[in-house]
């Protein structure tokens, strides 16, 4: 399938390089803004070539030290555990759905799909998790609500399984007398690796970027805050101030003016993204095909 035509290779590489530039430049701007001197940033605006550099924003982050690092730890913990459970549960759920003669297949697919369109809203969901299941102010508050399983992921994996893994394979395996779990483990998982890694990436990013669970389910126990919660709190405080500046009594604005400025937000955004930038390329090798289909078939 790989086309070795030289002109074609050059052309697609050029196109993709342009894409890379379009992606990288804004990142560069983000990084530059985070190391631009605060006053220069406000007075002169954002630029790729700041007049004056300053590491003030990062010093600020380091000063609040423990908090940031704890939030980091929390984010990593939640992301790793959540992603593993997510991928596991999704794969287990999607594989039967991909079998074309599973009784009730359409109904169950609809059952999954329906949740993508309709939801009861935040309050009922909050009542469910907080009041009945008691996840509030615990790690489970970050882990369980909404993110543990995504209907979208189930449907995507199902689609992949049903097209990329031939039916005959299952039948062959069954005639061999392989148990369903064994088929799942030794055929479906290896063959589904590309999509599972992809879904894992999405799920991981969803956990990494999530701040809503922290907002609603972590109230008193702010030690559980993730890095996104810290960032989001700063941003929402700033917006509140911008919207209410003229209404608020001045002492309130005094308290709010301690909220870090744009440069620090940029720095925190960068710090929040950094680990992913490092980990991401390491994941790349899994995107390519797991094992050759032919091998199994033969």
């Amino acid at each position: 399938m790989v086309n070795r035509n030289k002109g074609y290779q050059i052309a697609i590489n050029i196109v993709m390089m342009i894409v890379v530039c379009m992606v990288v430049l804004p990142f560069l701007l983000l990084i530059m803004s985070s190391i631009t001197d605060e006053n220069v940033l406000l007075a002169k605006g954002y630029t790729f070539f700041p007049e004056k550099f300053s590491l003030g924003a990062y010093e600020y982050i380091l000063k609040s030290g423990e908090k940031i690092f704890r939030a980091y730890g929390m984010t990593i913990l939640i992301t790793v555990i959540g992603t593993l459970i997510n991928v596991g549960m999704s794969a287990l759920f999607s594989y039967p759905l991909a079998l074309k003669n599973l009784p009730g297949r359409r109904v169950i697919t609809f059952f999954v799909f329906f949740t993508m369109l309709f939801n009861g809203g935040l309050v009922p969901s909050y009542i469910m998790w907080s009041t009945y299941l008691g996840v509030k102010d615990t790690v489970f508050g970050l882990l369980l609500p909404n993110l543990l399983l995504s209907s979208m992921n189930i449907l995507l994996i199902r689609t992949y399984f049903s097209t990329s893994i031939p039916d005959t394979l299952y039948e062959a395996a069954q005639i061999d007398g392989a148990g369903q779990l064994r088929i799942f483990r030794s055929i479906v998982l290896p063959l589904g690796k590309p999509i599972l890694v992809t879904i894992g990436t999405f799920s991981g990013l969803a956990y990494w970027n999530d701040w809503t669970n922290g907002l609603y389910y972590i109230n008193k126990n702010t030690e559980l805050y993730t890095i996104q919660n810290l960032l989001n709190k700063m941003v929402s405080d700033l917006q509140f101030l911008a919207q209410n500046a003229t209404n608020l009594s001045s002492s309130a604005t005094a308290e709010l003016s301690k909220v870090p400025s744009t440069g620090v937000q940029m720095a925190i955004a960068f710090v929040a993204i950094l680990p992913i930038i490092i980990v991401f390329p390491l994941l790349q090798k899994y995107y390519s095909k797991g094992i050759a289909l032919g091998a199994v078939k033969g």
Partner: peptide
């Protein structure tokens, strides 16, 4: 509660009967 979020968080607590 923080300034930016108190409204949202309070609404949730009041609605759920926390």
């Amino acid at each position: 509660l923080s300034f930016g979020d108190y409204q949202e968080q309070l609404r949730m607590m009041l609605s759920a009967g926390d």
